[in-house]
């Protein structure tokens, strides 16, 4: 059976990269004593996939994984066993069984909601003040890094919500395999509008992953399992 689980990557371990998080969750599954399923082949591995790789340096409040189990297990038991086996820094929040034929969670991600905690009150105030101007534009440029080059792109259509209060900026931005707006790109664009030469340090927390319903509106990805 397949189990979808929502987990948190704590701020403390935000510098751990995606591959290491993957390995840590796999080891957690091995510790849990749950009946995990392995792939066939010469080097069998645990059947698990993550809805979206979270950047090194970012924390995640509601990240999503999809685990295949060799035998049926209740979500309650799954949560209990896993939380005994995981470090507190990688805590599981919710679990739900999935249809075996359901598409991979990865293919359903459309956008993500972020919190950007800006270091420095002055910078935060300037950036927040620039938000209305940013939303008023039809074009907002930022540099996008691809595998081979650095290119300019318009991120305005990728921003679906943007507001700020105190030291925090809150944003909902496109996240698909094809295109996405990363928090760093947003910060860069806002800095330009605010006239900030050096982008301030920030701590990024991805609050949740979003999919879309029939009407095209965003809904929490876990609701789609």
């Amino acid at each position: 059976m397949r189990m979808m689980a929502v987990f948190e990557k704590s701020e403390r371990i935000r510098h751990i990269g995606h591959l290491d998080i993957q390995r840590s969750v796999q080891r957690g599954l091995r510790r849990s004593g749950l009946p995990v399923a392995y792939s066939g082949g010469f080097h069998p591995h645990i059947l698990i996939s993550f809805a979206s790789a979270l950047a090194t340096g970012a924390a995640g409040k509601r990240e999503i994984m999809d685990v295949t189990l060799a035998e049926p297990v209740t979500p309650e038991l799954f949560l209990e066993k896993m939380n005994q086996a995981m470090p507190p820094e990688l805590h599981l929040i919710e679990a739900a069984p999935m249809d075996d034929k359901a598409p991979a969670m990865m293919s359903l991600v459309r956008a993500a909601e972020y919190d950007l905690a800006i270091d420095g009150e002055e910078a935060a105030a300037m950036l927040t003040a620039a938000i209305p101007a940013a939303l008023g534009q039809t074009e907002l440029t930022a540099m996008r890094k691809t595998k081979t080059k650095l290119e300019e792109c318009n991120i305005r259509p990728l921003i679906h919500a943007l507001d700020g209060a105190g030291n925090h900026i809150h944003a909902v931005m496109t996240l698909t395999e094809r295109e996405s707006c990363k928090p760093g790109m947003l910060l860069e664009a806002l800095c330009r509008l605010a006239g900030l030469e050096n982008p301030p340090r920030m701590v990024v927390t991805r609050l949740r992953l979003l999919g879309s319903d029939e009407t095209g509106g965003f809904i929490p990805l876990e609701k789609m399992a």
């Binding site: 704590s10 290491d20 840590s24 995981m86 470090p87």
Partner: peptide
């Protein structure tokens, strides 16, 4: 290599 300094590993 920030993970060298962050701790929070399993079984610590």
């Amino acid at each position: 290599k920030a993970p060298r300094y962050t701790g929070g590993e399993m079984n610590t």
